[in-house]
Measured scan of single mutants.
Amino acid sequence: WEITFERNGKRITVRTTDHRLLELFEKLWRNGADERELERLAEEINR
């Protein structure tokens, strides 16, 4: 799966075969987690 999240013109794409990681990322994104931390998390998930 691949999903791109966008907020205030900032886009972060997450790619993984584990839908649970996408759900976790989406919850953090929707709850306003720090964008720098989300970028780092996305990099780890995308590996």
Rank of each mutant, 00 (worst) to 15 (best):
D34C: 05
W1R: 07
E2R: 02
E44V: 12
K10L: 15
R15L: 05
R40E: 11
R30G: 04
N8K: 05
K10M: 15
W1S: 04
R36M: 14
W1D: 05
A42N: 02
E23R: 14
T16Q: 01
E2I: 13
K27S: 12
R40W: 09
H19R: 15
R11Q: 12
K10F: 15
I45Y: 04
L41K: 03
R30Q: 08
N46D: 04
R7W: 11
R30C: 07
V14I: 15
E37V: 14
E35M: 15
L22Y: 09
R47G: 13
T13A: 03
N31D: 12
W29L: 04
T17I: 07
E44K: 11
E26F: 15
D34T: 12
T13M: 06
L28G: 01
N31Y: 06
I3Y: 14
L24N: 05
F25E: 00
E43N: 11
L38F: 03
V14S: 00
H19I: 15
E35N: 08
W1E: 04
E6C: 15
N46P: 01
R30E: 07
A33T: 11
A33M: 09
L41M: 10
E44D: 11
D18H: 07
R7T: 09
E44M: 14
L24G: 02
T13S: 06
H19W: 15
N46Q: 05
T4F: 05
R15D: 01
L28F: 12
L21V: 09
E44F: 15
L21P: 00
E35A: 11
V14F: 08
I12V: 06
K10E: 04
K10C: 09
A42Q: 03
F25M: 04
F5P: 00
R11V: 13
R20N: 11
E2G: 04
R47E: 08
E37Q: 11
E44T: 10
D18I: 05
T13Q: 05
N31S: 15
T16P: 02
N46Y: 06
R47S: 14
R7S: 10
E2H: 05
I3Q: 11
N31G: 13
R11S: 12
N8W: 03
E39T: 11
T16A: 10
R7C: 08
T4M: 07
T17L: 11
R36T: 14
L22E: 01
E6M: 11
T16S: 11
L41T: 03
E6S: 08
L21E: 03
I45S: 02
R11H: 11
R47Q: 13
L41C: 06
L24S: 05
L38M: 07
R7Y: 13
R15G: 02
F25P: 00
E23L: 14
E43V: 07
E37F: 13
T4Q: 06
R40Q: 13
H19P: 13
R47A: 14
L38G: 00
T16M: 04
E43P: 01
A42S: 04
T4E: 05
N8F: 04
F25K: 00
L21R: 04
L21K: 09
E43W: 05
A33I: 08
T4S: 09
D18E: 07
L28Y: 12
R30V: 08
W1P: 05
H19E: 10
I12Y: 14
V14A: 01
L24M: 13
D34K: 03
R47F: 09
